[in-house]
Computed example of a mutant assay.
Amino acid sequence: MKLDLGNITAFVTVARAGGFREGARLSGNSASRLSEQVRRLESQLGVRLFNRSTRSVALTEAGESLLARLAPALGEMELALDVVNSFRNRPAGNLKLNVPTAVARLVLPHIIPDFLAAYPEIRVDIIVEESFVDVFAEGCDAGIRYDESLEQDMIAVPIGPRFQRFAAAASPEYLARCGTPSHPRDLLEHACIRGRFASGATHPWEFERGDESLALHTNGPLIVRPGGGTDLAVEAACAGTGIVYLFEDWLQPYFANGRLVPILRDWWPQFPGPKLYYSGRRLVPTPLRTFIDFIKANPARS
């Protein structure tokens, strides 16, 4: 059976987008054209690939089976076509990265603008989330994370500062009212603003000085989800709600304007900076290879 590649591509586009309108927006085609292409494919195959209603479009069992078999093949085709990019004077294409909020806020602003200025034909799509996901199943080219356990086929490249620190801080008003901790254990008697991840886990606050280190499970009146809730945690600390524990770079502007005061500075722990990771089993797309070469050639900027 000879099938039209355009019809197959239309089917995959609609399936990945979750509907004809979104598929049209992402692909640049019209929804009616995508609908007609899918209808032709269904007619040729003799099976319904989508269940359609006025409110939703969902894959049938046959559609799910077809997508599972087609997606890897189309991915390989896209990578094969991307090889042509290496023969262009200027690389082009899309680069999709999955990163945590701290990287989006503290690291990428020092890299992405200069990268886009150097390679104007590359478009960068940044997905910001805290959980460690299968970035390739999500359609991303690479991920950036801190100190994660990577599978053996992954390649990791340092990006951004090679080392960072966590810092503890509180407002002048809070310290005047509740006192200033002189040892990390004193935090157990203070109001601490904590973070809880989507998994339900609350990470301990870690401190180190010389050969001494400790991890504390603090308590306090406010718990936020890291990422979207982090700004709230900082503003609450500025308002005197309690003590915040966060990236030093994130809190530095608040130290500078006096809204927060650093505490227990001698105990702030240092940890390795983030790494960009990607699969060593796949052909590396030209935009990603260009980005990797850029951060390697500009370590000071990154």
Rank of each mutant, 00 (worst) to 15 (best):
E208H: 11
P158W: 01
W205C: 13
F294H: 01
A300C: 02
T241K: 12
K275L: 12
F166V: 12
D147C: 10
D141W: 04
E36Q: 14
R196G: 01
L41D: 13
V128H: 02
T13W: 09
S131W: 01
G6L: 14
L175Q: 09
L70R: 03
S27D: 09
R209S: 10
V124A: 07
T202E: 15
E235H: 12
S30I: 06
S65L: 13
R55M: 05
N219H: 14
Q164N: 07
V135I: 15
N98S: 14
R52K: 15
I295C: 01
L5Y: 05
I243G: 08
F255M: 15
P253A: 02
L214S: 06
P285W: 00
V57L: 03
T180C: 11
W267R: 00
G200M: 09
R194I: 03
Y254E: 02
D125W: 10
R21G: 08
T13K: 11
F50M: 07
L70C: 06
G160P: 06
R39T: 13
L66Y: 02
V83E: 15
P172W: 10
E212H: 13
L187T: 08
T54E: 12
R225T: 15
S199H: 08
A17K: 05
D231H: 12
S53K: 04
D266H: 01
R40E: 07
L232G: 01
P299A: 02
I112D: 03
Y174E: 02
A117P: 03
L283P: 03
P285H: 06
Y278F: 13
Y245R: 10
R40A: 14
S53I: 04
E121D: 13
K296S: 08
N29Y: 13
H183M: 00
E235V: 00
A215D: 01
Q37E: 08
N219Q: 13
L49C: 05
S279R: 12
L251V: 04
A201H: 10
W268E: 10
I295K: 04
L95M: 00
P158F: 02
L34M: 07
F255G: 12
L216V: 06
A118Y: 05
A300D: 12
I159P: 00
Y146K: 02
A168V: 10
E78Y: 10
E248N: 12
L214D: 08
R301N: 05
Y277I: 13
C178M: 12
G228Q: 13
H183P: 03
G75V: 09
A17L: 06
V128S: 00
A117Y: 13
L260E: 09
A24F: 04
R25G: 05
A15F: 05
F50H: 05
G63C: 07
L251F: 06
V128N: 04
L188E: 11
A62R: 14
F87A: 15
V234W: 14
P253N: 08
S43P: 03
P287T: 08
A201Q: 05
V84R: 08
W267P: 00
R33D: 11
M77I: 15
A297I: 05
I122Y: 11
S65N: 07
D231L: 08
I223D: 11
R162I: 06
N29R: 13
G75A: 09
P172A: 08
P274K: 00
V244N: 03
G75E: 15
E36H: 10
N85M: 12
V234H: 12
L232C: 03
I243Q: 05
H183N: 09
V284W: 00
V103L: 04
Y278R: 09
V38W: 05
A24C: 03
L59A: 07
D4Q: 09
F166M: 15
R194W: 07
